[in-house]
């Protein structure tokens, strides 16, 4: 669907709920330089959510949705978990997959979109939790990367199965005791970013969602690289404040503490050579565009 299609029939405009009217009037569909700074001044692509108060996942959702470069032509694929409670309130096409097979669905979807809409940019973004990405869906995750499927995989890593009460996940840190894992994790956190790199991902980032500008940058990079070159992977720390015994106001601090240089979510980035070249080209184009706009503005003045 292109943004030209997002129009309400005039004869029935007045009966449309206000959130839909706002989406048409002031959402940033089609805006080239959309980003997290639009939050507050335009309609967000998330209406309301049912996550817990202070949940860092809600911050992540807001930053990601504000940063997608092409939301009107993007399809997100989700999986069971806290994220699936949010998708019904998201104004971007999305598919809820069976638990774990999100990357398989995204593979087929991306290929079908390329056939159905040749010559038109259609982005596919997978967004799933650590259970779906690393435990139950690891096979589908890896196979998609091996096949060099051109879409972005985002893992919301909260280091356990949060909405079923706190069971151990592969991304849980060693020794951590959760409500439903009283013995404590016996082995190390799975090193999925390294596995992603070795499996053929062209852009891999491991970080928290404490900095909106950083999330904007990595989302844009990941989507652009996936569109042109091959698979990309983002592992974002979105701690479950309930399951780690924190209060609503402590999510941000938890992320800041976990991104210190020696901690497990210290910023790590891998960019393949072709991806580096693409990013350089995009940066050069961006610079040219800004210079042209500046020149035009000075001429008009």
């Amino acid at each position: 669907m292109s943004k030209e299609k997002i129009k309400i029939s005039e004869a029935l405009y007045d009966i449309m709920p206000s959130d839909y009217q706002d989406l048409v009037k002031s959402a940033t569909y089609g805006k080239e330089d959309r980003g997290w700074k639009d939050i507050g001044s335009s309609k967000e692509l998330i209406e309301q959510h049912s996550l817990c108060a202070g949940c860092p996942e809600s911050m992540a959702f807001r930053y990601i949705l504000a940063s997608l470069p092409n939301p009107e032509d993007t399809v997100m694929v989700g999986s069971t978990g806290c994220t699936s409670l949010v998708f019904p309130m998201v104004a971007v096409h999305n598919i809820h997959s069976l638990f774990g097979n999100q990357n398989a669905i995204a593979s087929g979807l991306k290929r079908a979109l390329s056939v159905r809409f040749p010559g038109r940019t259609k982005d596919v973004v997978v967004l799933a939790g650590d259970g779906a990405t690393v435990d139950i869906g690891l096979d589908m995750t890896l196979q998609a990367w091996f096949r060099q499927e051109k879409f972005t995989t985002i893992c919301f890593d909260n280091e356990l199965y949060a909405n079923t009460g706190g069971q151990e996940s592969g991304l849980m840190q060693k020794g951590f005791v959760a409500k439903m894992a009283p013995v404590g994790k016996l082995f190390d956190k799975v090193r999925l970013p390294e596995i992603a790199r070795e499996s053929g991902c062209h852009y891999v980032v491991n970080c928290t969602v404490s900095k909106p500008s950083l999330i904007e940058k990595v989302i844009r990079n990941a989507v652009h690289i996936a569109r042109e070159i091959g698979p990309t992977y983002l592992q974002l720390y979105t701690p479950c404040i309930l399951e780690i015994g924190k209060n609503s106001m402590e999510g941000l601090q938890e992320m800041r503490d976990s991104e210190k240089p020696t901690e497990r979510f210290a910023y790590k980035e891998y960019v393949s050579e072709p991806a580096k070249q693409l990013l350089a080209e995009l940066a050069a184009k961006d610079k040219e565009k800004k210079a042209a706009a500046k020149q035009l503005a000075s001429q008009e003045a």
């Binding site: 299609k5 997002i6 129009k7 029939s9 005039e10 004869a11 029935l12 449309m16």
Partner: peptide, 18 residues
Amino acid sequence: LVLWAWNEKAAKKATAVR
């Protein structure tokens, strides 16, 4: 299919519904 103006036909149907 009638609330959104996908095409001219949809907009006309919306007018008829009104």
